[in-house]
Structure formats: C-alpha cells, structure tokens
Nucleic acid binder design. Structure first.
Length: 271
DNA sequence: AGACAGACCTGTGAGC
DNA sequence: TGCTCACAGGTCTGTC
C-alpha cells in the first residue's frame, strides 16, 4: 500500500525516464477508478511533453503544457515503467506510452486511486488546496501541531491522520509515531502538551524519513518473490501487533478502533 | 465548524 | 477442500 514514502520513491524512480518525454499514446483498459478516468485523457496528453515530476502529500503531479496530471495511487496502486510491448497483467488499468520506448503503466487491484487533469495551478485544486504541511518540511513542527490541536476534542491519532493538519501520516505511521513519542492515541488532541507535540512531530518525521531511506518498503500488502513480507515490517513496534508483548516493556499491546481505524498501542509506554 | 459514519474495491485470511 | 465473510487502507461526501 503506497504510503507517502512509496509515492516519493515512485516519483524518484520514474522521473528520469518520464521528464521531457512526449506522450505518443494513451490506453485506458479500466476507466472505473475512484473517480472515472476522463474520456478526454488521450486528447489532453498525446503530443504533450512532461515537465518536472513533483509530489504533494500522496499525490503525484506530472506537468504538461497547460496544466498537470494529478495521480493518486490509492491504497493498492503502482506506477511503473515497462518497455513498449510488455503484455498487460490483470489490473493494469492505464498506459501512457512515451516517445522513448517506455510505457508508464498504472496497476491498481482495488481501484482506490485515480488520475485527473488539472488546468492551471494544481495547488488551487480543491484536492490540494486544503492540505496541511509536508511532514518533512520546515512548515511542520511540534509548535504547528500544538497550535492546530488546541480545543480539539478528537483523539490525537485521527487528528494526526487528518490531512488538514499534516499530510502523509497514514494509519501505520500514526501508530508508530505515537508509540515513539509515548503518547496514548486515545487522548483528546487538545490535551496533548506542547512538549508531547514536539516529540510527536519529531517521531512522525523520523519514521517517514526512515521509510523513504529504505526505498518506501511496503508494509503490509507487499510480498517478495520469495513470499517474505516487507523489510520495514520488522521495524514496527505496535502496528499489527495487538496481543503481542511490547518490545520496550513486555506489556501486552492493546488494539481498538479509533476514528474507524484499527489502532494498536502499549498502554504502559504510552500515556 | 467539528465529529463521525458511509461509500468506494478487491485480495487475503479466518472460520465454518 | 471449498465456501462465505469480515477486514484493511485513504479520501471524499453526507449528516448531525
């Protein structure tokens, strides 16, 4: 499942072979994604050249002459480059054929992702305009979290996962950051202290940076050719470990539902 | 405006 | 073994 680190890894991986390339053909095999693939996609793209690829939150931005492709990988999407002529597999929904002999191929079993075209400034688009700061930027800090969370009664975990507060912190990273910071995920956001917000911001940034450094290892759905789970899974302290002993103190990891999401935490280490 | 429920989709794994 | 079914996940929409 692409979390922010995987989206960033995708961007870095495909950029060298996509930037500056002309689109020669667009093939849509399955238009029914989270939002339908626009019928005019080929019309918009063919003959255009891609500019410098960017990322905002979990969105990839692919610039063309008068706008941007806005691509979201959803929960199971991947964007890869394959040589022209590579036969599509099941769930290979969209191909963007490039002049250099490569195909930018979108694969998404659960079809939670989407691709759309935004004319003009993409950051003015409703999907991007309300987003909070990037977790690895200077705009994100403990002070920012502290200021945003005052008087908020929602639990700190769903607060952290709210894109308006900080982007790219999904269920897994929110759980891990809260463990690292020693904060109980059920606490009302407004009651988390300034010092705890500082620890939380540092924890969220460092766990995301570590995951990017590992190449955005998938954490759950990923299974290698040898059937082994993702590498980063070994680093998880609480996520998916309900009922198991805490690695720090040995107490049992609790699991419950917060904001409609499974949440795991150590009731002894996290107060 | 904040809080929360529901919808979207399908592979996986548990239970029968 | 084969079937059913709940669950996971991010984000948008709708309701209170």
């Amino acid at each position: 499942m692409p979390e922010l680190p995987e989206v960033e890894t995708t961007r870095r991986g495909i950029a060298p072979l996509v930037e500056g390339q002309e689109v020669t053909e667009v093939i849509v095999r399955q238009p029914r994604l989270r939002t339908p693939v626009p019928g005019e996609l080929a019309e918009w793209l063919v003959g255009q050249r891609f500019g410098t690829l960017a990322r905002r939150a979990k969105y990839l931005l692919l610039p063309i002459a008068d706008g941007h492709l806005l691509w979201h990988l959803g929960m199971s999407g991947s964007l890869r480059l394959v040589p022209i002529g590579t036969p599509p597999r099941t769930h290979d929904h969209v191909d963007v054929v490039l002049g250099n002999g490569h195909v930018l191929r979108y694969h998404d079993p659960r079809r939670f992702g989407f691709v759309d075209f935004v004319r003009g400034d993409p950051h003015a688009d409703t999907r991007l305009a309300r987003l909070g700061p990037e977790p690895l930027s200077d705009a994100f800090s403990g002070e920012h979290l502290f200021a945003r969370s005052r008087k908020r009664r929602v639990a700190i975990k769903p607060f952290l996962m709210d894109n308006a507060n900080v982007v790219g912190v999904g269920n897994i990273y929110a759980s891990e950051a809260l463990f690292m910071a020693g904060v109980d995920p059920r606490r009302p956001a407004g009651e988390v202290t300034r010092e705890e917000c500082e620890r939380l911001a540092n924890a969220a940034s460092s766990v995301l940076a570590a995951a990017i450094a590992q190449g955005g290892t998938t954490l759950r759905d990923f299974v290698g050719g040898d059937g082994k789970p993702g590498y980063f899974a070994q680093s998880l302290n609480v996520y998916g470990r309900g009922g198991e002993p805490c690695r720090e103190c040995g107490h049992e990891i609790m699991s419950l539902v917060l904001g409609q999401r499974a949440s795991c935490f150590c009731p002894y280490c996290q107060r």
